[in-house]
Design a protein around this nucleic acid. Structure first.
Lengths: 260, 260
DNA sequence: GAGTGGTCTAGACCACGGG
DNA sequence: CCGTGGTCTAGACCACTCA
């Protein structure tokens, strides 16, 4: 009946979102706690259910709350893990069965697991650019989804030019105990330099499915390209991380000050 | 009247979102092109306007489209810039009036500008942790919002322990011609090492305002902490980048292979 | 069964920008 | 002015889970 926002500076659904958001940020509504039900909010704001839902949807898409049907809405928890890309050039794992990442996670008391598959395909255009090859030539794609405590953690796809690695262990869809870098070195393509590109975006539908993401969950895309001493690209890794679960960490030393 | 999704595997609004998303990803609807109006979609999918709006809202929050009232919905364009954090340790700008970032942008043919303000405050908790100081002690916050061609580009806030920089040029809310690093060195706190932390999340309300963001726009947060040779933290920079406009770039060389 | 959120309708009025 | 999307209502039925 009434309403008409005319005299009010902001739409009602935004006022509702602002009000709840403020309580979340201030900590009045702490992570894991339950919000009032839609019905309660209808009464509190004297409005229709759709309007309340609109306001709640704003917060869902901001990643602040998430609905757990049919129990209600809850303030989201954000537990961050650190990822250290330079681990590429750190010591090899002690157990040959386990790759570097899995060992690291086990050390932290978590239960890591992964699923690996290998395909020979034409590369995605961005990968072709970085490997400096034609999009019609072939690459070996080693794809894995990594899990921690049975929850999807990241997607890690590495692409190698097929000509470089054909016939090698890289084609085998299992852990490479001594590390893929070692295999590349043995093939005569030692990786001595790498570039890292990092961007943030909303996930594509296939990423939503593979990482079991809901709304309000951006992904962090970390693209790593490795080069030989001749500046020849030998691999390109595309790492899709769940934004709310990862921080990527780098360490840098001022040139000429390497010896701390 | 009819409806009832019972016989259909997915809700109608999702079918609509899926259908349009597929056209966008395949390129049938190219960046910048206009989508059918809500009314058209109501007819095409034989449904009510709210349902169509629900489906469109999904795509808006995925960052794929954006409404330009009252002209209609358009497929979003994504133009990426690169940011190179190690520029910290690269040559100083040729013009003393211009800082490194502005020079870089000018070289690229863009029109950079920035607004700088300086405050003396108690640090945010994450900054206090990284500077290894009490949250109640004071820091100097140099805040800037950078613009390119009058559009907000990023937020760049640097925090220095007040005790370290009091009385210095750092307190002056203007460009520091020779660079803040140089000033720190002159004060006896040469930064020789840095850690970079990068994460992706949805923006907070103040970031939405300062960067003029709409829905479906995650931000990339780049937190840089600089240390002296004694491992004493001397500054912490928090860089908030618009996800859809930035790629962060690093370069790494295998230890012992530094001389390419 | 009761209560939660999820989907959907068929209307309504508003604000805004371009012809 | 007209057409666009933006806000809002007052209903309805569904699916799911927990007591």
């Amino acid at each position: 009946m009434t309403r008409r926002v005319a005299d009010s500076p902001k739409p009602l659904y935004q006022q509702l979102a602002d009000s709840l958001r403020a309580k979340i940020i201030s900590g009045e509504l702490s992570p894991g706690s339950q919000l009032p039900t839609e019905k309660d909010l209808c009464e509190e704001f004297a409005t229709a259910r759709q309007t309340v839902r609109h306001g709640l949807a704003v917060l869902v898409n901001e990643g602040l709350i998430s609905p757990a049907r049919p129990r209600g809405y809850f303030v989201r928890r954000h537990e961050l893990s650190y990822v250290r890309p330079q681990s590429e050039w750190r010591p090899q794992p002690s157990s040959p069965e386990m790759d570097r990442w899995m060992e690291e996670q086990t050390t932290l008391g978590r239960e890591p697991s992964q699923r690996i598959s290998v395909e020979i395909i034409q590369p995605p255009s961005k990968v072709a650019e970085r490997l400096n090859i034609q999009p019609t030539s072939l690459v070996v794609a080693r794809r894995r989804v990594r899990y921690i405590d049975s929850e999807p953690f990241n997607i890690n796809d590495t692409f190698y030019p097929y000509e470089l690695v054909k016939g090698s262990e890289i084609l085998n869809p299992a852990d490479i105990a001594r590390g893929a870098s070692q295999v590349l070195t043995e093939l005569g393509y030692e990786q001595v330099r790498a570039t890292d590109e990092i961007e943030a975006r909303m996930p594509l539908p296939d990423e939503v499915a593979r990482l079991e993401l809901g709304p309000g969950n951006p992904v962090l895309v970390h693209r790593l390209t490795g080069y030989t001493a001749n500046d020849e690209p030998v691999r390109c890794t595309v790492n899709v991380l769940i934004g709310s679960k990862h921080v990527v960490l780098f360490e840098r030393v001022k040139p000429g000050k390497a010896s701390l």
